[in-house]
Each structure stands twice: as structure tokens, then as C-alpha cells.
């Protein structure tokens, strides 16, 4: 295939700059030695990273986000894997409708989900609790775990499982020794993507979080609403760094374009 011309490469350069500019700026400002927002022109300093420790709300919010992300993605995977396997293995009545239901949190605007969850959990007397946040996050990250598992499971050659059955494997052994290893990249990618989604979610969580159960994005958002200073940039830089780790893992494991498009082996 022919290469790109100089005009195309110039466009590409501008495009990549546009995509990276805000992220790079946040990370640069985080290293400023000044007491106000500025680029670190007079050397780099870690003072704003150290300042995070003096602002316990951020530290607490980080632990809430971490726990919420880990728990909700774990539960989502545990519920999604059997459902995805059942939908690819058996002639389940209403399969299309079920899939649409399980993917619906992707279609429903998060602000609508936030409103609905706030109404629902308040009516149950669970408003502002970690349990309510957890339940809401499980539902919201479920489609990511479900979609990648579904793709992996439907890309599986059914002859492999039949071969294992003919060799005497059955039930849980079949799942543990044959099916799970084969769909594992999809499941792990689904879990990682679900974790990131939970860790990053603002729109839905901002309706549910109360002081004490504020997640990191919510805390950052409320902080920015009041004022923007280098402290919030250093927190953002940390969040970006954590995401980068997941990003590289996901890309190595499954290919980023496939993870994000939710397309299986094709």
C-alpha cells in the first residue's frame, strides 16, 4: 500500500498534537514549582504531588474509587461470564432482547442512569451509601465485561468443547480446563475495561456520591468547580499514569482497537 503524502502527514501531526495537548499540559503543570498554575519553566518540582498527602479528601476518594472499581468489575465479570456463555451456547429464547438489555447501560445516557439510581436508592433508604454506589457501578460496567466475553465466546470453535466432552470432560472441568483458558484474554480485557470505566465514571456517580463515598473523579470535579490550582493537576497526572498502565496491558493483551470496539476474533 502506498504511503501518506506530506500533506497527510502534516494533518496527522496536527491531529496527534490536538489529541495529546490537554493531557500533556495537565502533566506538565503538575510539576510546576510555583504556587499557581504555570508551566514548569523554572525547573521541575514534586511539591504538588507531596501536597496531595496534605489533602486527605483526595486520598480517601482514591481508596473509594479503587475499592469500587475492583469490586464492581469483579462482580460484573462473575455475572457476565456465565450469561455470555449461555447466550452463545444454548438456543435461549429472546436472545436478542436479552443482549440488548445487558448492553443497555451503554445506550442510556449516564446522566439518566444517575437520576434513576438516585431516585431508586433514595427510595430504598440507601442514598449516599457505598452499597448503592457498588450496585450502580456493577450495572454500568457490566456491558464492557459482557461484550468482550461474548465476543471471545462466540469466536470459540464449538468443536473444541465437543472434543473435550468426547474425551470425558464435563461440567465444571470442561469450563475450567478448556472453555475458560480459551476465552481468558477476552474475560481479562473485559475486567480491565470494566475497572477503568468504574474508576473514571463521573456523570453517573456524581448523583450518588455523598461526603464519605465520593470517588476520585467526583472529588476532582467538585474541586474544579470551586477553583483550579496545581493540586488538582497533580492528582490528574496520577490518574493519567494509572490509566496508562491499564492501557498498555489491554493493548498487549488483546489489541486496543478490538477491546474498545468490542469486536472479537474476526
Amino acid at each position: 500500500m502506498s504511503r501518506n503524502g506530506p500533506l497527510a502527514l502534516a494533518f496527522h501531526g496536527l491531529f496527534v498534537t490536538f489529541m495529546l495537548a490537554p493531557i500533556v499540559v495537565v502533566c506538565l503543570v503538575a510539576f510546576t514549582p510555583e504556587g499557581f498554575l504555570s508551566l514548569p519553566t523554572n525547573g521541575f518540582s514534586l511539591r504538588w504531588f507531596r501536597a496531595i498527602a496534605d489533602y486527605p479528601e483526595f486520598v480517601h476518594a482514591f481508596w473509594v474509587s479503587l475499592g469500587l472499581g475492583a469490586l464492581s468489575s469483579l462482580v460484573a465479570v462473575l455475572v457476565a461470564v456465565p450469561a455470555a456463555l449461555a447466550l452463545t451456547r444454548y438456543p435461549v429464547p429472546g436472545r436478542g432482547a436479552l443482549q440488548a438489555l445487558f448492553l443497555s447501560p451503554l445506550m442510556i445516557p449516564h446522566v439518566v442512569l444517575g437520576v434513576a439510581f438516585l431516585r431508586f436508592f433514595t427510595a430504598l433508604g440507601l442514598g449516599g451509601t457505598f452499597l448503592a454506589l457498588l450496585a450502580a457501578h456493577i450495572v454500568v460496567v457490566f456491558p464492557f465485561a459482557f461484550r468482550l466475553t461474548l465476543a471471545a465466546a462466540s469466536g470459540l470453535d464449538p468443536a473444541l468443547e465437543r472434543a473435550a466432552i468426547s474425551l470425558g470432560a464435563g461440567g465444571f472441568t470442561l469450563f475450567r480446563r478448556v472453555t475458560l483458558p480459551l476465552i481468558l484474554p477476552g474475560v481479562v480485557s473485559g475486567w480491565a475495561l470494566a475497572f477503568i470505566q468504574s474508576f473514571d465514571d463521573l456523570t453517573m456517580t456524581v448523583f450518588l456520591a455523598a461526603p464519605g463515598t465520593e470517588t476520585l473523579p467526583v472529588r476532582m470535579f467538585l474541586y474544579i468547580q470551586d477553583n483550579i490550582d496545581p493540586l488538582v493537576t497533580s492528582v490528574s497526572a496520577c490518574v493519567i499514569a494509572i490509566t496508562m498502565v491499564f492501557l498498555v496491558v489491554l493493548d498487549r493483551l488483546y489489541g486496543l482497537d478490538r477491546v474498545l470496539a468490542g469486536k472479537g476474533s474476526h
Binding site: H12, F15, V16, M19, L20, A21, P22, I23, V24, V25, V26, V29, L37, L193, I196, F199, D200, L202, P217, M220, F221, I224, I228, V232, T233, S236, V239, I240, T243, M244, F246, L247, V248, L250, D251, L256, D257, L260
Partner: peptide, 28 residues
Amino acid sequence: RGIFLLLILGPLLISVVARTLGWALLFG
């Protein structure tokens, strides 16, 4: 292609708050 795909699709997973903060800094 792999590198630039990562650079362009990667921001999708980075917190919207962090990304928007970047624009707020750029616009300021």
C-alpha cells in the same frame, strides 16, 4: 500504526475530568 492508534484511542480511557481540566488550562 500501533503507536499512533494507542496515542489516539488511549485518551478514551483517561478520565474525562482530567482531559477537560487540560482544556480548561489551555483556554484559561
